[in-house]
Each structure stands twice: as structure tokens, then as C-alpha cells.
Design a binder for these strands. Structure first.
Lengths: 121, 121
DNA sequence: CCAGATTGTAACTTATTTGTTACAACTAAT
DNA sequence: ATTAGTTGTAACAAATAAGTTACAATCTGG
């Protein structure tokens, strides 16, 4: 997970905490960690671990998936851009070219390992 | 997150890896961690961090949420199986991970750019 | 069956992460 | 504008997690 995504997650955490009406100190006490850690998580300076994130989701009344799906929109956008080649950087084109070659070879690969099933994606 | 849940997560990871046709060593090399770590993650002996879990989800062709949300239905196993990696080299793993993300996003992509066509790969 | 490959796990060392302390910036209320 | 309360962040020590090595168990193709 990229550094950028942790910043997004941190913003969500901060907003969720404020919506729930907690201070960082209260959250920290509840989680058994320091106030500073909570701050670091919210600013994206330090990576939050899964169990702490899960506890925060419980405390703030959110589904864990809400915090996990951070960056999903960004991913979709990146893929969407793949179809508008004029906006792409050179380094991206390399990856897309390889991915397309891979997809083109997928059919023969499938015959190699499995049977004759077709996959609708 | 309880210790028990980590064991469940580990089992899911192992099954997902085996379905994808990877060895622990291949996965470890892709992730830049040791083979032993992968083993510890799969047995639940050590806690997996969010970023590593996210990378594994990409590599195996699963949504990250699948490994987090207990009781969620298995999604896109067909896609994962389509990419059995038995005969592939370690260097290809990066491309495969990206190609899988590409496939997983095809559905939303289709809605974004086109109409109701289906794509057979 | 045999040899090689894969996996689980323990013990130890190294590296990374977290806690602690300290201080500055910002806010809201009086 | 001053006080109390909150938050961001740096630096370092302490705690924890990860890497290393080693070995046994299991699986697998020839």
C-alpha cells in the first residue's frame, strides 16, 4: 500500500473520529496506544496495523471495509485512463503493453493448465 | 483482531496462493520478504500487515476485502484460476499482479467507457 | 523408492516500529 | 490576549517484528 493511500486512510480516520465526537486521547486510551500514535495514523506518518484499524472501525461505528477500500476509486480511474492513451506517461505504456500481451496469451495458457472453460469478466 | 481471526486469514491466504499456483518462495520474492514470513502468515504465527496483505490480494487476484471480511462470498475465483502461475518465472509476477488488477477492474471500467458488451478473454 | 522441492517451526540476531518526552501551532472560550 | 485543550511532529530509547539459520516433516516427479 502506497504512502499516498495511507494519507487517504488517515483522513478518513480523522473525519470518522471527529464525527463520533472523540478526541485523539480518548481513542488512544480505548485502544491502549499513545495519543501520538493516533495522530501519526491520521496524518499518514505511520502505518496503522489491521487490528488497531479494526478496533477504530468498531469504536467509530464504521464497517472495516469502509476504511480498507481506500484508493479504490483511484484504481478505477487509473484503469479507465488505460483506454485513453493520449493521457498516459511512457512508463505506464510499458506496463499496459505487457499486460495486453499477457492477456493475449491467456487463452493458450489456459489450455495448458486447465480445460476448455471460457471466462467472462 | 483476535488471534483466531489471524489463523482464519492465514488459511484463506494459503488457499488463495495454492489456487493461484504459487509457492511460498515465489510469493516471498515478489513481496520482498522471506519465505519464512509467508509461512508464518499462513499459519497465523505472525500478524500480517495491511500493505503486505494488499499486495498478496493483488497477486492472487482477490479483493482485499475478501481476506478481511469474514463470511464474505468468494469472488472472482475464475479470474484467479485463469492465472495459474505454474509455468511462469518470478520476473513475470509484477506484470501478472497488474494484469489481475486490470481484470478485476474490467467490470467498472466497462460501465465507465462503453455499454453492455461482455468481453471474453 | 529416491532425490529434490516445499513447508513448518524453533532459536537467535538484526531491523523496524512504537512509546516517551518535549515543544510548537492552532483552536475555542472567557 | 490568555488560558486550557487539542493536535502535529521531532528525537531518542524501548519494545516488537522481521530476517537468518538450521533442521525436520511432507509432498512430488522420475
Amino acid at each position: 500500500m502506497s504512502e499516498k493511500l495511507y494519507k487517504e486512510l488517515g483522513k478518513k480516520l480523522k473525519i470518522a473520529r471527529e464525527n463520533a465526537g472523540f478526541t485523539q486521547s480518548q481513542v488512544a486510551k480505548f485502544l491502549g496506544i499513545t495519543r501520538e500514535q493516533v495522530s501519526y495514523f491520521e496524518t499518514g506518518a505511520r502505518e496503522i496495523d489491521l487490528s488497531t484499524l479494526s478496533q477504530m472501525a468498531d469504536l467509530f461505528g464504521y464497517d472495516l471495509a469502509y476504511f480498507i477500500d481506500v484508493g479504490k476509486d483511484v484504481k478505477d480511474t487509473e484503469v479507465a485512463l488505460a483506454f485513453r492513451a493520449k493521457d498516459l506517461k511512457d512508463e505506464d505504456l510499458e506496463v499496459i503493453a505487457k499486460a495486453k500481451r499477457f492477456l493475449l496469451n491467456l487463452d493458450s495458457l489456459r489450455k495448458l493448465v486447465k480445460g476448455e472453460e471460457t471466462y467472462n469478466v
